[in-house]
Structure formats: C-alpha cells, structure tokens
C-alpha cells in the first residue's frame, strides 16, 4: 500500500503568451501513493488544474520531472504518452467531455476498442461499467439525450473501463446538483476502498476534500504548506 505511483519533482509550468509569462506552477513536488485518494484544493487560479494536467500527461511542464509507475513521463515522445494515457490513465472532466457523435456505450468502449480488445469483451466491459454507475438503461443514448449527472457518470465509466492505474478528476461535481455530487464522491470512495483505485481529484468543495485520504493545498502555483 505504500508504493509511490506518482512522483513529481520541482514541477514548473509557465504559460507564455507573447511577452506575458504566467507562472501557473512555480515549484511543485508531490508524491502520491498507489491506492491513495488525493484531493487537490486551493483558490481559483492557484494552479490546481494545471497540476492535474501535468500529472495526467495532458500537458508538459516547462521544468521538473514526473515519474509515474517508475517511468519518466516528461521525456516520452508524444505517441508514447498517448499510449500511456490509453493504457494507464483515466480522466473525468468538469465538463464531461463526452464525444457527442457516440452513444453512452460507445463513449465508454472506444478506448478498450482502441486497445484491441475483442468486440464481445469490450461491449461486455462497457455495459458492466455503465451498469455499475447506474446507467444500465441509458446505454444507447447520445450525450445530448442525457442529463449532466448522467453524462458525468458516463465519463466516469469511460475513465474506469480500462482499469487505469490512476484516475484523474478535475472538479467532477462542479456542474452537478448536490445529490449527483454526493453520488459521484461516494462512487470514488467506494472504488478506492474496493479495488484500491488511485484517485487524484481537484475540488473546490471542502466536504468533498475531506472524504479523500489527503488534501494537497495549492496557492499561487506552489504547495500551500500552511494548510494541513
């Protein structure tokens, strides 16, 4: 239970728009254990999403190193990072980000399909995941035919269908009503308990953060050590 799965050292991310340089992350070092449920919290604009994107291989830091599962992911080529995301990582975004042209079921099975899983297997897996998040009866609906909470559950099913090593979630409840929010966090908690799912979740809600094993506080692009 105490294997370090993410180890970020002195991560820096500077956005340069012409002459304006924004230090979104200045110097962040964090270790996350396998099986840990971590919440990232902090004021708006503090760099939470930026940190999640670096750890989740959706962006590249301007400086620093990130090891995931022992592999230096910053150095990897674009294609290798893409494969890494497909095989080891799962994402839940605030705005769901489902593909509107695909049904709930297809949105979930597109990644196992891309991994080369046989059709019966990925269909069964996707159905199982959707049933688990309570959408067994909505599998053939397109995202536009689903409520926000239902879409978020589809995106959770998509994130988990490949049994990722790490699940990243950026304010997964921000667009949901309080019931759906509570459901989502309960589901995360449950996954973490039952299968030891490693979860890194950005949130604004203190009560959500409290349900995680640990809160990493960010302020102005650095770890806010004053909070505990």
């Amino acid at each position: 239970m105490n294997k370090v799965i993410i180890s970020a050292k002195k991560v820096e991310r500077i956005y340069s728009n012409g002459i304006v340089r924004t230090y979104a992350l200045k110097d962040v070092s964090v270790d996350i254990q396998q099986g840990e449920f971590v919440a990232i919290m902090g004021p708006s604009g503090s760099g939470k999403s930026t940190l999640l994107h670096q750890l989740g291989l959706l962006d590249n830091p301007t400086n620093g190193s990130i090891l995931i599962d022992g592999e230096d992911v910053v150095q990897l080529s674009d294609d290798t990072r893409t494969r890494f995301r497909l095989e080891k990582l799962g994402y839940v975004f605030q705005s769901y980000n489902l593909i509107p042209e695909l049904t709930a079921l297809e949105n979930v099975y597109i990644t196992p399909m891309a991994r080369g899983m046989p059709e019966e297997e990925y269909t069964a897996k996707a159905k199982e995941m959707l049933t688990k998040v309570g959408l067994g009866d909505r599998m053939d609906h397109y995202p536009s035919e689903l409520s926000g909470g239902q879409q978020q559950r589809v995106s959770i099913a998509r994130a988990l269908v490949n049994k990722p090593k790490i699940l990243f979630a950026d304010e997964p409840t921000a667009n949901l009503d309080s019931d759906s929010s509570a459901d989502t966090i309960r589901l995360f908690r449950q996954l973490n308990k039952e299968i030891g799912q490693t979860i890194v979740m950005v949130t604004h809600e203190e009560n959500e953060g409290k349900q995680a094993d640990r809160i990493i506080w960010i302020k102005d692009g650095i770890i806010d050590k004053a909070k505990k």
């Binding site: 890494f84 497909l86 990582l89 593909i99």
Partner: peptide, 16 residues
C-alpha cells in the same frame, strides 16, 4: 476540434 482533443486525451492515437 473538441472531439479530436477528447479522443487524444483519452489515448486514441493521432494516426487513428
């Protein structure tokens, strides 16, 4: 564009 971004984010390779 967004669809393409999502596909990439979830790990679908560029060639596909």
């Amino acid at each position: 564009r967004k669809q393409i971004g999502i596909l990439k984010a979830v790990g679908i390779k560029k060639e596909i």
